[in-house]
């Protein structure tokens, strides 16, 4: 068993994939924190689903699996979806969450139609376009990991650079505006960061599960701290380890898909945090309630005895 573990750990492919999924997890955790704090957790879901038809159509156009080109397709259809969502919420009485799910499901449906239609194309089968739905981390190449790492460095630099601006804007957008920080600029950078995170995560985790990776780590991290800096760091670490552990678990068996395992690991982190976090966790709160009750009961008894 231990030897087996060592063999896996020293395997180059494993190291590569673990690094790739780890970075994707890290970025999802960090960037996802801003999305959840802005109450936009559904946006990630909508964008990832909306990217699917773009990927399919980009493939139809070039007939090759050129990751960069597929990404451009994903970005374009993601942007169209965002514009549609904004149009619907602004011009009609449909609420944001309904608009999101409307666009999400129709784009996803369209994406499935396109993918199914090109399934018979031998190129498409070879390219494994289906992997975008559930993800296929094991197919990650060195080139992919380099791209992921490059995007990662850029995104993390932006987070550090705009730390104060993002924090203030996420907390109180109107105040940030009155201070003279352009909301258009901040909004644009934040949305671009989410779109990029989703797109680099798409191939390995897939359309359906990427939003769990965006939301989960920040929810887990929020249980442990009241400070944004710590929440962001903890969310990043949670995402990173979920990626690495998920990849490890899936390498131990023959037919265990990586993306879903990663999401299961994230969920375990979330449940553990909800239960065991020192201040806000369910167990800590239960214990505190007990102590309080005991404390007040004795005081009430003292009062009663004093009276009689």
């Amino acid at each position: 068993m231990l030897i087996e573990l060592f063999t896996i750990l020293s395997d180059y492919t494993f190291q590569l994939v673990a690094l790739g999924t780890g970075i994707i997890g890290l970025l999802s955790g960090v960037i996802g924190t801003y999305a959840t704090l802005r109450k936009e957790s559904l946006l990630g879901d909508a964008l990832s689903h909306a990217a699917l038809p773009g990927i399919g159509l980009a493939f139809v156009m070039i007939q090759r699996k050129e990751l960069l080109f597929l990404m451009i397709g994903a970005i374009v259809s993601g942007l169209i979806a965002t514009a549609l969502i904004q149009l619907i919420t602004r011009k009609t009485l449909v609420k944001l969450d309904s608009a999101l799910s409307l666009v999400l499901s129709s784009f996803f449906g369209l994406g499935l139609v396109v993918l199914t239609a090109i399934q018979n194309n031998p190129n498409a089968q070879q390219a494994g376009l289906q992997s975008f739905i559930f993800g296929q981390a094991s197919a990650m190449l060195q080139r992919d990991v380099q791209l992921i790492a490059g995007v990662g460095v850029i995104l993390l630099t932006l987070v550090v650079l705009f730390w104060k601006e993002f924090k203030c804007y996420t907390f109180d957008p109107m105040f940030s505006r009155t201070l003279g920080f352009s909301s258009k600029v901040i909004e644009f950078i934040l949305s671009m960061m989410i779109v990029l995170t989703i797109i680099i995560g798409l191939e390995s985790v897939g359309v359906i599960l990427i939003s769990a990776l965006l939301i989960g780590p920040s929810i887990a991290a929020r249980q442990w701290s009241h400070r944004l800096s710590r929440v962001v760091i903890l969310a990043g670490l949670t995402g990173f380890f979920s990626g690495v552990i998920g990849t490890l678990v899936s390498s131990m068996g023959d037919n265990i898909p990586t993306g879903p395992v990663i999401v299961v690991v994230v969920s375990l982190f979330v449940f553990a945090s909800l239960l065991f976090a020192p201040k806000q966790g369910l167990i800590a709160r239960r214990i505190r309630k007990r102590e309080k009750q005991k404390h007040f009961l004795t005081r009430l008894n003292d009062l009663k005895e004093g009276q009689s």
Binding site: F171, D172, S225, H226, R227, L228, V231
Partner: peptide, 9 residues
């Protein structure tokens, strides 16, 4: 109208 649960002191 801010989110009072925002992680900030």
């Amino acid at each position: 109208s801010v989110d009072w649960d925002f992680p900030t002191t």
